[in-house]
């Protein structure tokens, strides 16, 4: 082309040709969904403390397990991806999104078998979270040991 020659010229040229990502609307949706999922988590926590008479630590465990179950269940019936379309980060960041990131590839790769498909691909999205989270916590632990 005569008018555009380099990569940079093209990138500058297309910048204002891109559709807007509707950032404000996305943020509002993320805020409402994210906040609501957390409220629901808090309700679970308070209820298991009150009705199951659990201590703080066990109540937190029950809360996380139930949230993960709900995330996994909604993913398996095909609802979570529809929520994600509106909620964006609001449904990715809560722990239910972590469950979604494990269940989605597990379902998708089931056709490649239960070992090489489900087993191997289950952590294709969640694996990095465990790798970096665990490594960071070990490093923090060692530093804490020497400097506490």
């Amino acid at each position: 082309m005569k008018s555009i020659k380099t990569d940079k010229e093209y990138k500058d040229y297309v910048k204002d040709k891109q559709p807007k990502q509707t950032l404000l609307k996305n943020c509002i949706n993320a805020f409402i969904w994210g906040g609501s999922i957390c409220i629901f988590g808090q309700l679970l926590f308070d209820m298991s403390k009150k009705h199951l008479e659990l201590n703080e630590k066990d109540a937190a465990t029950v809360q996380i397990i139930i949230l993960i179950f709900i995330g996994a269940f909604l993913t398996s019936v095909g609802i979570y991806d529809k929520i994600g379309k509106h909620a964006g980060a609001g449904s990715i960041v809560p722990i239910t999104g972590f469950a979604n990131s494990i269940v989605a590839p597990a379902m998708e790769y089931k056709k490649e078998g239960y070992v090489m498909g489900v087993g191997a691909k289950m952590f294709s999205l969640a694996g990095p979270v465990l790798v970096y989270g665990t490594s960071a916590s070990v490093i923090v632990g060692i530093i804490y040991y020497f400097f506490k």
Binding site: I65, S76, F98, I102, V103, A104, M107, K110, L130
Partner: peptide, 18 residues
């Protein structure tokens, strides 16, 4: 949390299709 995610993920993949 991790065990729950693994087990529920596995169960979900057994009982449903993408």
């Amino acid at each position: 949390g991790i065990s729950a995610a693994v087990v529920f993920g596995y169960l979900a993949s057994i009982f449903s299709h993408s």
